[in-house]
């Protein structure tokens, strides 16, 4: 464990708490893509299949349980408790375009050809693009509540911090995970546009609005 990864994970944790706070405080899941949240639940469930037979550490175990539980809880909130506040007509990204290629890539690139390992690869590729329905929705509506942008910024920071973590591990442990690194770089790149608007507008006290 190094500080980049620790702060990355804490940023991931913070993003989920911010999202729950957004839903609770506005009593609404307006502006949040159900599709992206469903993809994250899929990512965590398919990645953490090793939860019950591969012990890494208490930290690792606790985080995995938290990510699975919180992603399922968010789906419950969106699907049942705050269902009327979700507008499916603006959440229209075709998730087949993400699920299909991720499955193909997982069949081509994996560390061992076993069910959990192929699912693990699938989850890595899917996580890289799971934010796209959310960013697509943002692009469509052209604006976002400030708290929603904080959620996205914390999620993007988590991904960005994993990059120095990998560089650090390369020098200290002489180790590179090519699947995680490639997918991670793609995933971080997807946030660049968002970060630009976040830094130039939201952090200057303005509303998140995209140029028409």
């Amino acid at each position: 464990m190094n500080l980049f990864r620790l702060f990355g994970d804490l940023s991931h944790l913070a993003s989920i708490i911010i999202l729950l706070q957004k839903i609770r405080s506005t009593r609404s899941c307006r502006g949040i893509s159900f599709k992206t949240q469903a993809l994250y639940a899929t990512v965590f469930i398919t990645r953490y299949l090793d939860l019950f037979y591969d012990w890494v550490s208490l930290y690792n175990f606790t985080m995995k349980v938290f990510f699975i539980a919180s992603s399922c809880y968010i789906l419950y909130l969106m699907r049942y408790k705050y269902r009327p506040t979700h507008d499916p007509s603006i959440d229209t990204f075709r998730v087949e375009y993400l699920l299909g290629p991720s499955a193909v890539l997982a069949l081509l690139f994996h560390y061992r050809f076993t069910v959990p390992e192929v699912f693990w690869s699938f989850s890595i590729f899917l996580e890289a693009v799971a934010i796209l329905p959310q960013l697509f929705m943002l692009q469509r509506t052209g604006e976002a509540e400030t708290i929603t942008t904080h959620y996205l910024a914390a999620l993007g920071a988590y991904r960005a911090l994993y990059i120095p973590n990998w560089i650090y591990r390369y020098f200290t442990e002489d180790m590179v995970d090519p699947i995680a690194v490639t997918a991670g770089i793609v995933q971080t790149a997807l946030y660049l546009d968002f970060f630009y608007v976040y830094f130039t507008k939201v952090l200057q006290g303005q509303k998140f609005e995209l140029p028409a």
């Binding site: 990864r5 994970d9 690792n60």
Partner: peptide, 10 residues
């Protein structure tokens, strides 16, 4: 080896 899965990551 240099290339290995980082399974301790989340």
């Amino acid at each position: 080896s240099l290339f290995a899965p980082a399974k301790d990551e989340l």
